[in-house]
Amino acid sequence: MAENLSVKHLLGIKHLTLDDIQLIFKTADHFKEVINRPIKKIPSLRDITIVNLFFENSTRTRISFELAERRLSADIINFSASQSSVSKGETLIDTVKNILAMKVDMVVMRHPNPGAAVFLSKHINASIVNAGDGAHEHPTQALLDAYTIREKYGDVKGKKIAIIGDVLHSRVALSNIFCLNKLGAEVTVCGPATLIPQYIQELGVKVNHNLKETLNWCDVAMLLRIQLERQGVNFIPSLREYAMTFGVNLDTLNKIERPITIMHPGPINRGVELSSDAADSKHSLILTQVENGVAIRMAIIYLLAGNITISNFS
């Protein structure tokens, strides 16, 4: 196994090698042990400053990153676009360059535009962690999903994973497809034809529009949120109809003969893609995903920070 990441930034799963992913998982194993100790903080990153730049709303990801950074003893600055000079018309590069001028070492960024993190990496020196860029990638979510599957089944290789729902608008789906493919899982996407991108088979996945068939095939069903805020036109006739055709409830799950695991990146539209009884059932790994999210993010930040050179001492 590699002793170091092949990348300076985490922009997307697309840019990672299999060795990188395995190294992140192995490191996360140790951080999972750390976050279950009586004292959950370690001093490794005490001379690192990280800015969390959120140009889009977030609860889970933001708290998870913040906890991961604090547990590593990094100094952190939180920034949300709505309360900043972005609303006065400042450009992304200007905003970031000004922050970096105050000696910040790492940027965690969520942005509504696909490619924002890649764009930024071409203009600044600091390490960048993509916390979601539009409908493009959400690499930390994919890593924590695959890590959770690995934890439950011992290995991701050969597992049958279904990604169900609004694949068209989902950065989680795209990152997961890249990640699961690299780890050797079989992936099927499922949803109404309007919400499955054309030519998605080119990425090495199968498409099935039948929920029942898909659920009977898979070991793990990853459900995606219907992203109402990203839909300019109506892709589905109504939420009620979607819930009836593609919604998963406990009754559906109990009818499946083989064991099945349910995952969801959150936030859940309860009663739409997933009913409450299914979300809170024994099949669900949703809260494990959240716990693992902190360990995975600690591992990524730790591994990226290890490459930041110390300038002030020399």
Partner: peptide
């Protein structure tokens, strides 16, 4: 995670189990 040479070596410090 408690060592004083983090970021002072060429290779990253990979932990062992506790």
């Amino acid at each position: 995670f408690y060592r004083d040479d983090f970021r002072r070596r060429d290779e990253i410090l990979i932990p062992n189990a506790t």
